[in-house]
Nucleic acid binder design. Sequence first.
DNA 1: CATTATTTTCACTGTTTACTGAATATTCAA
DNA 2: TTGAATATTCAGTAAACAGTGAAAATAATG
Lengths: 173, 173
Amino acid sequence: MSQELPDWEKAREEFVSQWGSLGTQWGINRTMAMIHALLMTAPEPLCTDEVMEKLQISRGNAHTNLKDLVGWNIIRIVTKRGDRKEYFEAEKDVWKIFTTIAKERKRREIEPAIHLLRECAAKTQDETEGPGREFHQQMRDLNEFLSFAVKVGDTVISMKHTSALQWAMRLLS
Amino acid sequence: MSQELPDWEKAREEFVSQWGSLGTQWGINRTMAMIHALLMTAPEPLCTDEVMEKLQISRGNAHTNLKDLVGWNIIRIVTKRGDRKEYFEAEKDVWKIFTTIAKERKRREIEPAIHLLRECAAKTQDETEGPGREFHQQMRDLNEFLSFAVKVGDTVISMKHTSALQWAMRLLS
DNA sequence: CATTATTTTCACTGTTTACTGAATATTCAA
DNA sequence: TTGAATATTCAGTAAACAGTGAAAATAATG
């Protein structure tokens, strides 16, 4: 079935499949990563059936992962007039992809950690010396670091691509 | 068994267990994250049996994850003289933890992605227009972005904590 | 409405990953 | 050497996660 594809589509299939494997290392499930890769490289938005067909996956699987990607804000639903199907389109601008993912990861992964650290620090406020104090201090240090990192991250995320670029260039020179 | 612990140890147990759950969201297995949390908050290095006991896990599990953490360079083996057991100690300096993890993630997660993107871009060099060209450009864009991010990352990682702090402060102000 | 297209859910199955515990290998001290 | 202490491996099992497909729900059409 894939023997009559144009060259670039062969490269694309390779990309989709490999991006899927890389995804698993990133803690993202294979299908989700593949769908994302497929849509990022799609000339036009695709509907569920097209995704199912291209990736050879079931409707349920396609549906769940498409909706999860929408939840991550890295793909969006578009509709064609005179057609009641939902089509899906990925953000292609690299900087936007990056900032969106960074925002989500911050919300899902960093903020809960900060919350935990703050709690653990609070619970051990009164420790004045010994291991208890050291524990308290460790919680504070971790919390302070992550909170600061979030501030920096927020600043970067809110920058336009070109400003971020200029800022980073200055660091490198 | 945990009813006669000092207050700070209660907070610690909470921390260890919750850090374990957070770990799974980060794509790290629960046990590994728990061991890391345990060691980060341990007044003294712990041996395998102590880890097994505190976390109620099997020897094999403790062993494998301890060694994996050593492979990540975020814990290290120490020996006590007159005792042939291996003890494990976590890096406690937050900046060092961060740079070490960043280095490893770059190596394991970013670099393979860059490699793939470069390949896919190369394979589609010749596409001059249409969807093939767009695919090629997308691969280049992603590659360029990640490569640049790695450069910035490397620079930051190689900084001392205080320099990094000053640099980041300047960004925020 | 009734019909059809489409989306959503979910019980079940398959696959991958994590964990156990006992067997094996290694190391060190006597 | 030998054997006791420790570290490592690994086959088997358990748990978590991902994927299927058909049934149910929803939405659009005439």
